[in-house]
Design a protein around this nucleic acid. Structure first.
Length: 563
RNA sequence: UGUCCCGUGGUGUAACUGGCAACACGUCGCACUCUGGAUGCGAAGAGUUCAGGUUCGACCCCUGACGGGACAACCA
């Protein structure tokens, strides 16, 4: 039975912080989080950590978690991304109920906050070019200098800002900046830009606005407007926290949420940045954001991963504030653990070679009992058919077997799973290529599974499929997308240089049980002795079955045979 | 020659906030098995970046080095 109960209480630094806040009755004992994606790409497994954290924390502490799209840059954002993000969160099993928000919902309010800042003399319209502003900003080690427009009067600023909104200027002609400190050692405090002119059509507000708030000006205020108590984000915003706090302190906002940063999740043998994933999509290295090799949630879903496996993984991987690269084998372990309990066992032969059982009657067909899942009796049994001609895997036969090879070889016996013990008597080969065409065997009628004599021991058991009624299928074998653990660590070489040329191998001559014609993409299957598979949600149909290999079974023979 | 953050087995996360460095993945054995799967049992692997200090006692507190990361978009 699967143990879903937690044996221990999670006590990471964020939970510790929340427990302390609760004890001190901060925020009136409330916990309210939010997951704030920018709709400029698909969600990946790193986001799963953030989602699990924000929604999970809310559940755990009887609070709420909002979904809020951080859509302040119309040039990069699209509804396609909004839709995919919603679908992925639902798939993970989280529910934002009626709390679906967009930063763009707050544009009017944010505009008044900007006006408030101007009126307090804490923001000004700058008319320097982007280039000039950059030069004035200084460097991390040298202070910046003040813009000549820094001391415009409140009236002048108000007037200019109104005209910015009214569309009277071109992109980049003016910009609204917070007036903080041009010599601050924190670059984010050197009069950061807070509103820019951008005559672009927004996916939700259309052409209503031609000025848009910057992230720093939108995020904290949106948090405050929603009554967020703990605003959890990744480490790269750590240096922004003083600005986050400064804005909240200087504006008449309803509350002051606390920003808490954690280190993002990375995975070995893959890349996680949206920019790099976009490159793979645009270069057609992969078939799309949901290519089964992508670390995106939609990719994992199409590949056959379960959301439980992913959530288990992010929990087990944990998080802290140090840079990290989680081992992909932990994810794979969580996946196999979940699939082992859920997957329907079936037989499928990926690289078929024919066996003719010489002493089995020509026109006979038997129905044999097969167990659907040895880990879960409630999944029951099914019938599989057996006859004189069957297929087995090519690799389950060797003419000259090495030591410890427990499968079929000339003169040797092997058990056919759920059927009989057979012995190889001869081999027919192609004269030109030397390939094995047909393996001739004899069977022992006394050894049918379940019969008294069947307990006779043989070294190995192999899977097979009845040649009479099996169904052809295409099977796609996926492997890691990159050949090295840290494909984006090398600063000299581009990450695409480390792409694994064998990350996808297509097998066209596979034979599967006929019942699989009725399988659907969400069904979890185990092809016995091969791995976990699922129907491809895009390319499979009744006339042509296409399966994705989710992950192979652990293979200790592969390790032995390498030695 | 700045500010901020971070240094614990191969990997990731812990260590009741000062008391025997633990758990998981991985690795390696053994047992069991009609999936070379699963399962069960066991082993190896860090003395906590370094140097001082405080203390009966330091992964934990202090100081200083060293190492890694983030910050100079009108991106988020």
């Amino acid at each position: 039975m699967k143990n879903t109960e937690k044996k221990y209480q999670l006590n990471d630094f964020i939970r510790q912080k929340i427990r302390t806040d609760l004890k001190e009755n901060k925020n009136n004992g409330k916990v309210h989080t939010r997951f704030p994606p920018e709709p400029n790409g698909y969600l990946h497994i790193g986001h799963a950590l953030s989602i699990w954290l924000n929604f999970g924390l809310a559940e755990e502490f009887n609070g709420k978690c909002n979904l809020r799209f951080d859509d302040t840059n119309p040039e990069k954002e699209e509804v396609e991304y909004v839709d995919s993000i919603k679908e992925d969160i639902k798939w993970l099993g989280y529910n934002w109920e009626d709390r679906l928000y967009y930063a763009s919902d707050y544009f009017e309010q944010l505009y008044s906050y900007a006006v408030e800042l101007i009126k307090k003399g804490k923001a000004y319209v700058d008319s320097l070019t982007a280039d000039e502003i950059k030069k004035y900003r200084g460097t991390p080690t040298e202070p910046g200098k003040e813009s000549p427009h820094r001391n415009r009067t409140v009236e002048e600023n108000l007037n200019l800002f109104e005209k910015m909104r009214a569309g009277e200027f071109k992109d980049g002609e003016h910009i609204l900046r917070a007036k903080i400190d041009m010599s601050s050692p924190n670059m984010n405090l050197r009069d950061p830009a807070i509103y820019r002119i951008k005559k672009a059509t927004h996916h939700r507000t259309g052409d209503k606005w031609c000025i848009y708030p910057m992230y720093d000006f939108a995020h904290g205020q949106s948090d405050a407007l929603e009554g967020i108590t703990h605003s959890i984000c990744t480490l790269e915003f750590e240096n922004h926290r003083p600005l986050y706090d400064w804005l909240l302190d200087n504006l008449s906002v309803p509350c002051h949420p606390q920003q808490i940063e954690f280190a993002r999740l990375n995975l070995s043998y893959t890349v996680m940045s949206k920019r790099k994933l976009l490159t793979l999509v645009q270069n057609k290295t992969v078939s799309g954001w949901d290519d089964p090799r992508m670390p995106t949630l939609s990719g994992f879903r199409r590949r056959g991963y379960t959301s439980e496996a992913i959530k288990n993984f992010v929990e087990k991987a944990g998080f802290a504030k140090r840079e990290n690269v989680s081992d992909i084998s932990l994810l794979e372990h969580c996946l196999r653990e979940d699939l082992n309990y859920k997957a329907l066992r079936v037989m499928a032969v990926l690289n078929p070679v024919k066996i003719i059982i010489e002493n089995y009657p020509e026109n006979k067909t038997e129905e044999l009992d097969a167990i659907n899942n040895p880990e879960d009796e409630t999944m029951g049994k099914r019938k599989i058919s057996f006859s004189r001609e069957i297929f087995i895997e090519k690799e389950d036969f060797m003419e000259e077997p090495p030591k410890k090879f427990f499968r079929l070889s000339p003169g040797n016996e092997v058990r056919l799973r759920y059927a009989y013990i057979i012995k190889c008597v001869s081999v027919e080969k192609d004269k030109n290529t030397g390939d094995v065409k047909v393996i001739n065997c004899v069977y022992d009628p006394e050894t049918k599974s379940g019969m008294p004599q069947s307990s006779r021991k043989v070294k190995g058991t192999i899977h097979w499929i009845n040649a009479n009624d099996c169904v052809d299928a295409e099977v796609r074998l996926y492997d890691r997308l990159f050949t090295i653990e840290h494909p984006d660590k090398d600063k000299e070489k581009d990450f695409t240089e480390f792409l694994n040329p064998d990350s996808l191998i297509v097998l066209n001559n596979c034979k599967v049980e006929p019942s699989l014609k009725d399988s659907n993409p969400l069904d979890k299957l185990q092809f016995e002795r091969r791995g976990y598979f699922c129907i491809d949600s895009k390319d499979s149909n009744k006339d042509k079955l296409v399966f994705n290999r989710t992950i192979p079974l652990r293979d200790s023979w592969a390790k032995i045979s390498k030695q």
